[in-house]
Amino acid sequence: MYHWDFQVVWQSWDLFLWGAWITLAYTFASILLGIVIGLATCFARLSNSTLLNGIARIYQEVFRCTPLLVQLLWFYYAFPLLVGVEMNNSTAAILTLSLYVGAFYAEIFRGGILSIERGQHEAAAALGMSSAKAMWRIIMPQAVKRMLPAFINQSVTQFKNTSLISVISVAELAYMAAVVNGQTYRPLESYTLVAVIYFLLLFPLTQAADYIERRMRVSD
């Protein structure tokens, strides 16, 4: 019978705390950058320019059709060789995470915008609004509401995906579990604790997403 002992693992609480902080920082930074990249990509896809459209599509498909783990390794080990610049692991991590999530956000944004009826564009245009103004004042506020559940789900996934940057030695939460395990030889406790921390951080988010989705169904 295995004798659980969280005591030894808990002694490294500061490592877990630091790891959780790093995880949160990478999650929010990559989500913010991802929103910017996603919006730019979305509007490139919605534009009339074949060139912008093509570039945006290639970017999206490359990042959606290769594993994030491979992308991380590629940006950290291969990309610097290709362009001849040094890149530390945190830069590679934030770059890859943002590009990855941006490709998915773009699709969510695009779907939300395209789901707004043509009549809304027409009503705005008939008042004399430019299409940019109509997008900002009429289309986006409605689209944001519709894309919110998918956006939160993708962000929850992003939160969990940050655990992968441990492979390029970014000391986030999952990495810390490995460190503590190395010090204490207590894999069961180390990895259980880290799983519990992830759960406690994410559970409220998924609940919020469900709540928003339910409320939206009522209001539609």
């Binding site: 009826e117 009549g119 027409e122 009503a123 008939a126 004399g128 409605q142």
Partner: peptide, 21 residues
Amino acid sequence: GFGELRRRVGMVFQHFNLFPH
């Protein structure tokens, strides 16, 4: 331009197209 024309020539649609938000 279209902008000024539409400011001065209003339109009402069959399906209203009110802004629901």
